[in-house]
Amino acid sequence: MGLLLFVLVLSIFLGFELISKVPSQLHTPLMSGSNAISGITIVGALIASGIEGQDQLAVILGTLAVATATVNVVGGYLVTDRMLGFFKSKDKDSK
């Protein structure tokens, strides 16, 4: 438990360091990209829905959690990629 809190605090500081200098033109992709990362809760969802000896309610809850987290992950990464595909530099602009 102490170790987990340690990891938490370090990660928050790391997050501040990583993000604080991002240019404003990248704010939307940053947001949708980090939003996709928050879909990591899917790990918890997989365990909840796949663990042995579940009753019906637990299976329903777990499956719903897997489905919603998957939309978050797949939708988040794909839409971020699509968006970043639009960002072009003048030099590379073939048009």
Binding site: A45, L46, I47, S49, G50, I51, E52, Q54, V59, G62, T63, L64, A65, V66, A67, T68, A69, T70, V71, N72, V73, V74, G75, G76, Y77, L78, V79, R82
Partner: peptide
Amino acid sequence: EVVNFQWIAVGIVAGTIVGIIAA
């Protein structure tokens, strides 16, 4: 820990389809 896969598969397939269409 994870031993039952059928409902996981349902959740992942459904979520992936919705995610792709939406994105």
